[in-house]
């Protein structure tokens, strides 16, 4: 793979993470347990969509084949997506959404903090802008996991179940492949494998306060960096991409 292709791939991974999680959160619009959360989840989704636009627009420029952010978002099939498997998992109940969010917010906070000093100035600028928003996101998901975990018997049980059921998607976040290695070597990317210790410390503190048990590391799935996704992504894309696919080149 050329340097240019790897740079493109790296930006695509970052942009796809934001876009797919943003789309999932948008599904809560009108369905959240209370009005404040409806606003919170859609606001967070909007921040993620904004990040995705900046990252995918940049990815398209790096690729140099004339694809803009819309082309990348709406005209790629499942195998071409590079988002983490965790993020395409269905919303489930509110506890599942919060567990997914906490795992990713804690990861993305560290990843983007690292990207702020990327040698790629444009990426560093996007990271610095996004990090302010991610700070709010992480506080929000942290608060909810603690509140539900250390809540009633019912909320505790459901929060624990959510954490258990998503735990196997955690290791993929910290995987490194040839693209990651090359980007770290070029001073562009972040060594995510090195972030796991700090992530564990943060999550363990939240679990302790939430009276939740840390799940056993018994299973894990991966594959998103090669375009191997769970079946859920296809359904998500079918909904997200419907309009531009049905009415190509439609304009507002």
């Amino acid at each position: 793979m050329t340097d240019q292709k790897m740079h493109f791939d790296y930006l695509l991974r970052l942009g796809d993470n934001s876009l797919i999680l943003g789309q999932r959160l948008a599904e809560w619009c009108g369905h959240a347990p209370m009005l404040e959360e409806d606003l919170a989840l859609t606001n967070i989704g909007l921040d993620l969509l904004g990040q995705a636009r900046m990252l995918l627009a940049y990815a398209g420029e790096v690729e140099g084949k004339g694809r803009d952010e819309d082309r990348l978002a709406f005209h790629r099939d499942t195998m071409a997506w590079r988002n983490l498997l965790l993020l395409e998992q269905p919303n489930g109940d509110f506890a599942h959404t919060m567990a997914r969010q906490l795992f990713f917010d804690a990861f993305q906070y560290q990843q983007f903090a690292g990207l702020c000093s990327s040698s790629d100035e444009r990426l560093a600028g996007i990271a610095a802008k996004s990090l302010k928003e991610i700070t709010y996101h992480r506080r929000h998901s942290t608060d909810w996991v603690i509140r539900l975990g250390d809540g009633t018997e019912e909320s505790h049980e459901r929060m624990q179940r959510a954490v258990d059921s998503l735990w196997g998607y955690v290791p993929e976040m910290f995987d490194m492949d040839a693209v990651d290695d090359a980007m770290v070597a070029a001073g562009i990317g972040v060594d995510v494998a090195a972030l796991r210790g700090e992530w564990d410390r943060y999550i363990d503190e939240v679990f302790a306060e939430a009276t939740l048990s840390r799940p056993e590391d018994s299973w894990s799935v991966r594959g998103s960096r090669e375009g191997k996704h769970s079946e859920h992504l296809g359904y998500l894309l079918a909904e997200m991409q419907f309009l531009p696919r049905a009415y190509p080149d439609a304009k507002w």
Binding site: L46, L48, G50, Q51, S130
Partner: peptide, 8 residues
Amino acid sequence: TPTYSGCP
């Protein structure tokens, strides 16, 4: 400058 990343 934009304010928030996704600000419409």
